[in-house]
């Protein structure tokens, strides 16, 4: 569990967050068709997200919504990591 706090306050891909770690979205991937899809699910810069699971794919929560993402997508989203719940 100790390695999680190393991330706090750093800019990392969403894929690097551990379960129950939070982050604020800073940047979305370049692919704007993918951006549409993410924006439609509420994943936008400024939104706080929390990772629930990493396997078999990512589950993140934003507000009251849970969204499943594959690793490729999660790796393209940059977040400011904000520590554990």
């Amino acid at each position: 569990m100790a390695e999680k706090s190393d991330n706090t306050g750093k800019v990392v891909p969403l894929a690097a967050l551990s379960p129950w770690e939070k982050g604020i979205i800073l940047r979305l991937p370049e692919d704007w068709l993918l951006v549409r899809r993410l924006a439609a699910c509420g994943l936008l810069p400024g939104v706080e997200v929390m990772v629930h699971r990493r396997t078999p794919a990512y589950i993140v929560q934003a507000g009251a919504v849970r969204i499943a993402l594959d690793r490729r997508t999660a790796a393209g989203i940059m977040v400011l990591s904000g520590g554990e719940q």
């Binding site: 692919d31 993918l34 899809r37 993410l38 699910c41 994943l43 794919a57 589950i59 919504v65 849970r66 969204i67 499943a68 993402l69 594959d70 490729r72 997508t73």
Partner: peptide, 13 residues
């Protein structure tokens, strides 16, 4: 062989 790739997986649960 088919053109295109599997779409990125983003889905509300």
């Amino acid at each position: 062989l088919l053109p295109g790739s599997s779409p990125p997986f983003v889905m509300e649960l």
